[in-house]
Simulated assay, not measured.
Amino acid sequence: MKKTNGLIIGVIVLSFIIVWFAYQNVTDDTYEGMSIIPERRDIPLFTGLEPTRSNYVMEGNQWKEIKNFYFKKLPKRGWNVVYKDTSPNKNGSGFITRWRKHGLEWGLSVYSSYSETNNQTEVIFDKTLIHHSKKWIESIPKNICIYKNTNDNQCAKIRDQAKIKKVVQFINNAIDWKEKMESRVNESVIVVGDIKINVHYEEDKTIYFQSKKGLKSMKPDPGFFKLTNLSVK
């Protein structure tokens, strides 16, 4: 009798485990392409929206109702809108919003669009990291000095104030980088006032700015290379 009871309990437990794993797999597939799942966060979900891997959809033209819903609900949960835009067009319409919440190191983007062809409203929720950019250069100098190689004795000077402002803007707007810097093929030096900045760069790879003030990173913007006359080759 005891063996029979034990066998029954074992079968029940095994069945539960199988069902649980099956549910997890279905759930993971459903939300596979999403950076954030509203149902698992303090983010309300508009009634009728159904998850489809990377986004949520519902029948009909509901983008205005969805927009009004989130502008009403999110502020009540501590979210503040930092950007909003509406884009009507012939085939459909939609909106883009970005939100911030005090105490969180990430932001929330909510996009919605209506497709007249499919008669569906799509909504995308996106979790975005908030990047910080500490200002290294407070005032614009009369000139900046660029050493193409770290062992150069002479530098190329930029005296054009418009160009200097743009170079300073690139450096100040670069993202504060707290992780380990990856090695780069090229290294140059830019001297701005009393700040010596080592520039680590390579073709199509992140640029690193290194100085006594810390470390910054930036996308390999062609405009920066054009202004500084630095070559990745």
Results as ranks from 00 to 15, higher is better:
residue 220 P to N: 14
residue 216 K to H: 02
residue 5 N to R: 15
residue 71 F to G: 07
residue 154 Q to D: 12
residue 212 K to I: 13
residue 162 A to T: 12
residue 227 L to T: 02
residue 50 E to D: 09
residue 231 S to C: 04
residue 93 S to L: 01
residue 74 L to D: 00
residue 226 K to F: 10
residue 171 I to M: 07
residue 64 K to S: 05
residue 153 N to D: 12
residue 72 K to V: 01
residue 225 F to D: 03
residue 90 K to Y: 08
residue 98 R to C: 07
residue 122 E to N: 10
residue 219 K to H: 12
residue 158 I to L: 06
residue 171 I to S: 01
residue 172 N to F: 07
residue 177 W to F: 15
residue 188 S to N: 04
residue 169 Q to R: 13
residue 44 P to T: 03
residue 202 E to R: 05
residue 183 S to H: 07
residue 55 N to P: 00
residue 145 C to Y: 04
residue 201 Y to C: 05
residue 167 V to E: 04
residue 26 V to L: 11
residue 177 W to A: 07
residue 7 L to S: 04
residue 23 Y to H: 12
residue 126 D to H: 10
residue 79 W to H: 01
residue 230 L to W: 02
residue 45 L to F: 01
residue 57 V to A: 01
residue 205 K to R: 13
residue 104 L to P: 01
residue 223 G to P: 03
residue 68 N to P: 00
residue 50 E to H: 04
residue 68 N to L: 10
residue 192 V to Q: 02
residue 215 L to N: 09
residue 43 I to M: 07
residue 121 T to G: 06
residue 107 G to W: 03
residue 153 N to T: 11
residue 76 K to S: 11
residue 22 A to S: 14
residue 87 S to L: 10
residue 216 K to Q: 12
residue 119 N to E: 15
residue 55 N to W: 00
residue 39 E to T: 15
residue 5 N to Y: 15
residue 202 E to I: 00
residue 166 K to T: 13
residue 181 M to E: 10
residue 155 C to G: 11
residue 184 R to C: 03
residue 30 T to E: 07
residue 61 N to M: 08
residue 218 M to R: 08
residue 137 I to F: 04
residue 13 V to A: 12
residue 106 W to K: 06
residue 228 T to M: 08
residue 55 N to E: 03
residue 104 L to H: 06
residue 24 Q to C: 05
residue 44 P to F: 07
residue 128 T to D: 12
residue 126 D to P: 00
residue 120 Q to H: 06
residue 20 W to Y: 15
residue 72 K to G: 05
residue 126 D to C: 04
residue 122 E to H: 03
residue 72 K to R: 09
residue 160 D to L: 03
residue 92 G to W: 06
residue 63 W to Q: 05
residue 31 Y to N: 07
residue 221 D to Q: 10
residue 99 W to L: 04
residue 214 G to A: 11
residue 63 W to G: 00
residue 86 T to R: 11
residue 11 V to H: 02
residue 224 F to K: 03
residue 95 F to H: 03
residue 103 G to Y: 05
residue 6 G to H: 08
residue 148 K to N: 12
residue 56 Y to D: 00
residue 184 R to H: 09
residue 125 F to M: 06
residue 221 D to R: 08
residue 19 V to I: 15
residue 46 F to A: 04
residue 138 E to L: 14
residue 230 L to K: 04
residue 68 N to D: 14
residue 13 V to D: 08
residue 80 N to R: 10
residue 97 T to W: 01
residue 73 K to E: 15
residue 57 V to H: 03
residue 46 F to K: 02
residue 130 I to D: 09
residue 210 Q to P: 00
residue 2 K to I: 14
residue 223 G to W: 05
residue 51 P to N: 09
residue 99 W to F: 06
residue 163 K to C: 00
residue 123 V to G: 02
residue 215 L to G: 01
residue 159 R to H: 09
residue 154 Q to W: 10
residue 103 G to C: 06
residue 64 K to E: 10
residue 80 N to L: 05
residue 15 S to D: 06
residue 112 S to N: 06
residue 183 S to N: 09
residue 31 Y to W: 07
residue 226 K to Q: 12
residue 225 F to M: 08
residue 59 E to M: 08
residue 53 R to P: 00
residue 233 K to Y: 07
residue 121 T to S: 14
